[in-house]
Design a protein around this nucleic acid. Structure first.
Lengths: 214, 214
DNA sequence: GAACTTATGGCAGCCGCTGACACATGACAA
DNA sequence: TTGTCATGTGTCAGCGGCTGCCATAAGTTC
């Protein structure tokens, strides 16, 4: 499975753009790690890469978006994998398989992936403003997942809330697992993957019992 | 059950403060309704109440906070009710009872409550920026609920994820119900209450089955 | 009514973000 | 190679959210 940022650039122009883009992301993440998200100004980020502030805003919708864009590209793989799962598979099984596949990729495919993954989680989990931004991102992702699930379940997304409920609950468990990692200071893909599996096992045991009045 | 804003003001000074506070909230909500959240400037809000911008920021942490503060005060009743439920009740039963009690209060207690409730839901559901702010608020509320649930369940909130999972899932269902209302243009407490009950019934039926691989 | 506490207003300024315009730099064809 | 076109970049000017600082006004207390 190929990530967006690894698609071979067609010309010199495109290659330059990708370079600047990743330079900005790198500089931003390092600054966020070093002195905090709020304390870092856009001027500092662009100074480190030697581009103008205006250029920054041509690459990213805002300051938050730098961190989010990395997550976004990780999750493109997730969505693609989910869409490729067999259609007769139960929804939650497909979701679990997809997330498992992504985590394996992050862990074993590429040194850079693993490092970037840890860095992004570290930055997000240490900065409340970014944790909020992550919530926003999750709600976008929720809609995407709900749409895919609706298609799998032969449900009308306009009237049937079940795909949305499943997608939302799935992401909620993910988020709780992430928060657990943040609290324990765990950012490496291996460690995060383990906690996610634990959280899902616990959810499978706890939620049905709690909901059917136990 | 008494709301914060109805606690009798002790002196002239306090009474004046409450008046400006509610004047600001009223002006802000009306402006948000009339011309949208983003298009409304703080200068316009304070002009309508004839106070300085600086004063606005002494009452509210930010522009979003005006809308959130109304929700916050609704939910104080919710938290208080939850804390008062019998300790041997299953968590989800207690949550359901508490939300039911709040909705009844909003519906029948006071004309103002009902109107304000509808207005706030209307404003939030029509403005993406406020919907995001609501997510932030829900995550604060999640921590509060998890703490209360942990006490009820005799669990250590530092290591046991179950209270957090239950609180988070509960709020997720609430949020999905709200989004449903937003899509259908329903903002009156009665209508919202019905949708919330429907969403919970659907969740009770859907989630356990989905999670135990059905 | 004097002395105190506390809310308010005005100001200057930072920072995130955007539109408009001019310039520079790759892309492509003659 | 050169001219033309498309596209990315820098500069600047400006808005709006938000904050610190200090002087002043208003309510409270004795």
């Amino acid at each position: 499975m190929v990530q967006t940022w690894e698609v071979p650039a067609t010309g010199l122009r495109e290659r330059k753009k990708q370079r600047t883009r990743w330079a900005l992301i790198g500089a931003a993440l390092d600054l966020f790690l070093a002195k905090g998200y709020e304390a870092t100004t856009i001027d500092e980020i662009v100074a480190a890469v030697d581009v103008s502030q205006r250029t920054f805003f041509r690459y990213f919708a805002g300051k938050e978006d730098v961190a989010l864009s990395v997550m976004r590209e990780h999750d493109q793989l997730f969505v693609a994998t989910l869409a490729g799962r067999p259609a007769d598979e139960p929804p939650v099984t497909a979701l679990a398989a997809a997330i498992h596949s992504v985590l394996d990729t992050v862990r074993y495919a590429d040194e850079d992936h693993a490092g970037r993954f840890a860095k992004v989680r570290d930055v997000i989990d240490h900065n409340p403003a970014l944790a909020i931004a992550q919530l926003r991102y999750f709600s976008e992702l929720e809609h995407e997942l709900a749409t895919i699930l609706a298609r799998r379940m032969d449900a009308d997304p306009a009237t049937d809330l079940r795909p949305t409920l499943i997608a939302a609950t799935f992401l909620t468990v993910m988020r709780v697992a992430f928060e657990r990692c943040a609290r324990d200071g765990l950012f490496q893909p291996d460690e995060v993957a383990t906690r996610i599996e634990e959280a899902f096992a616990l959810a499978a045991e706890t939620l049905p019992r709690a909901w059917s009045g136990g």
